[in-house]
Each structure stands twice: as structure tokens, then as C-alpha cells.
Simulated scan of single mutants.
Amino acid sequence: MSRAAALRLGAFAGALALAFGAAFAIGSAVDPVAAADPAPAQAHGNEEMGGMAEEAGHDAGGQLPGLAVSDAGYTLSPATMSFRSGAKTQLRFTIQGPDGKPVTTYTKTHEKDLHLIVVRRDLSGFHHVHPTMDATGAWSIPFTFTTGGTWRLYADFQPAGLDKKLTLGTDVSVSGSFTPVPLPKPAGTASFTGYDVTLEGNPVAGHESELTFRVSRGGKPITDLQPYLGAFGHLVSLRSGDLAYLHNHPAQHAEPGMKGGPSISFGTTFPTAGTYRLYLDFQHAGAVHTAEFTLRVGS
């Protein structure tokens, strides 16, 4: 090989090496696996504040519940990912365990083996329901998606033998008419069907804060709230944007026959500053009611 040819070959090899190096750097910068790995959030365990115990909003690893379809080897697997609005259907799913088989045994949390939350991505159309499980581990419940759009499913449960609760989430598509619903502005009172519920509290991100809801009807405080899922209230909070899930209950346990109200308090830790949508379920006069609030959490 002539000296000139050798020089040309060396220059080509150097250019090729630089091209591969640049491609590797670009590929690393946009690696979908790396990009999908969220920065660890500050973890908060179960704490107490003024006698109110918090059910932790995220686990010790820092992963906020409801953002992933799989966690700790368990996966939420809907039977179908698409539905038609206005049509009554059977909402079916399984929880696949680490062995790849449907989970069939659970530890009850708040009187149920599994809680299912269904909400549209714009945080409208909230439902808290309790499906039934057959002998194969398949869960199902009759359900009607009222409008088109993207809806989020959350399964809240604790498998038998696991020392923590899990909340898995996934999106499903619903065909039909879709009109986005703007998130309501923050307000201290929610009024519906004769009930008025006021919210008191000034939460700060990263710190446990006490939220107190006061329930009245026709201007009179309600003092005969009925137990619902072992308590006088049940609170779900969803972070606007990614719909991270916070699930809290009051410390006071409610037995059948007990009466509560007008106040229901929760010890809650919001992981970040921002806007959250709060859904308070309570039972009165034999019916479950839901009060909804938009809350801005400061830093």
C-alpha cells in the first residue's frame, strides 16, 4: 500500500470513529429508559401529627403511586384497553404477580381486597368502585364510561405476603364525544345535592399537613356520618399533570353503628408544590357522596 493510500485509510478510520462516538453520545442523551427513570423523590414514612396517622403517599423507594403499571413484580392487566362511551360494559382486569399468574389472595385494606379508582385524564368523572374477583383472579365490575377521552384506572391493593400496599395505574381509551373540562379554580367550599363541605388547611410540600373537612346540610352541621370503609371519610388526591396518586384516611376507625362528623381530618403529605384535585367520599343517610376540591400546595 502506498503512503498516500495509508494516510487516506487512516483519515477515514478516524472520521468513522468520531461518527460512532457522536452517535453514542446522542443515543445516551435520548435513551428512553434513562429518560423514563424519574429522579428519586424525598420519601416519607408513616408519621403522626396531632393524633392523626398518615397513610404514606409514596413508598420508601421514592416512587409515587399510580404512575406505573407495574411495581414490585406486580402488573395491572386490563382485559381490553378501549371502550365506547355511553355503553354499559364489564370492566375486567387481573393483577399479575411476580410468577406471571393472576394474584388470587390479598390482605384487606380498609375492608376491601382491592379499590378501583376511575377518572378521566382531565380529572373529571371520578369514580371509586369495588369490583369482584372470581376464582381465577380476574376482577370485574359493570361500568359505563360517560364520555369519550383518555381515562385512568388505578388499582389500590395489598397482595397477601407483601408488606406494603401498591397502587398501579394505566390509561384506557374511550371513543365518543369529548369536551375537555377545565380544572376548577381552588375554592374552600364544595356544594352539591344540598350538602356543603368546607376545606381547611394550608399544606406545604414535603411536610405533613392537617386537612379538615366539615360537612353540613341545609346550613346545619352533620353529626351522624356513617362508617364508610372503616372510617368516616375516604380521601384520594391526584396531582394535576401526571396524576400521581395519594390515598389517605383519617386515624379514627369507625365501627358499624358509630356516628361521626361534622369534621373529618386527615394527616397528608403532598410530595411537591403544585395543583392537586381532592376527592372526599363520605356516607350519610345510607348513600355515599363525593366532594371535590382543587387545592394549590405551596413550597
Rank of each mutant, 00 (worst) to 15 (best):
M1W: 02
R3N: 09
L7K: 06
R8S: 12
A11N: 03
A13F: 12
A17S: 13
L18S: 10
F20R: 14
F20K: 14
A25K: 12
A25P: 02
I26D: 07
G27N: 15
G27I: 07
A29L: 04
D31V: 10
A35P: 04
A41F: 03
Q42C: 10
G45Q: 06
N46P: 15
E47L: 10
E48C: 07
G50S: 13
G51N: 12
A53E: 04
E54K: 11
A56C: 13
G57Y: 08
G57Q: 01
G61Q: 12
L64N: 00
G66E: 02
L67K: 08
A68N: 15
D71A: 15
S82E: 12
R84M: 06
G86T: 08
K101R: 13
P102F: 06
T105Q: 15
Y106K: 10
T107C: 12
H110V: 13
L114N: 03
H115L: 09
V119G: 00
R120A: 08
L123R: 03
L123P: 00
L123F: 11
L123Q: 04
H127W: 00
H127Y: 12
V129Y: 01
P131R: 05
M133G: 08
A135N: 14
P142A: 07
G149S: 09
R152E: 00
L153N: 02
Y154N: 13
A155M: 05
D156C: 04
F157S: 02
G161D: 08
L168G: 00
L168H: 03
G169P: 01
D171T: 04
S175W: 01
G176I: 04
G176D: 09
F178G: 09
V181K: 05
P182S: 13
P186L: 13
T189V: 04
T189P: 07
T193A: 09
E200K: 07
P203D: 06
P203F: 10
E208R: 13
L211E: 01
G219Y: 14
T223H: 15
D224P: 06
A231T: 09
H234D: 08
L235G: 00
S237G: 11
S237T: 14
R239L: 10
D242R: 06
L246P: 01
A251V: 04
A251G: 08
A251Q: 07
E255G: 10
M258A: 10
K259C: 05
G267V: 02
T268G: 00
T269H: 13
T272I: 11
A273D: 07
A273F: 00
G274N: 06
Y276R: 14
L280S: 06
L280F: 12
H284Q: 05
G286Q: 10
A291G: 02
L295A: 04
R296P: 01
S299M: 11
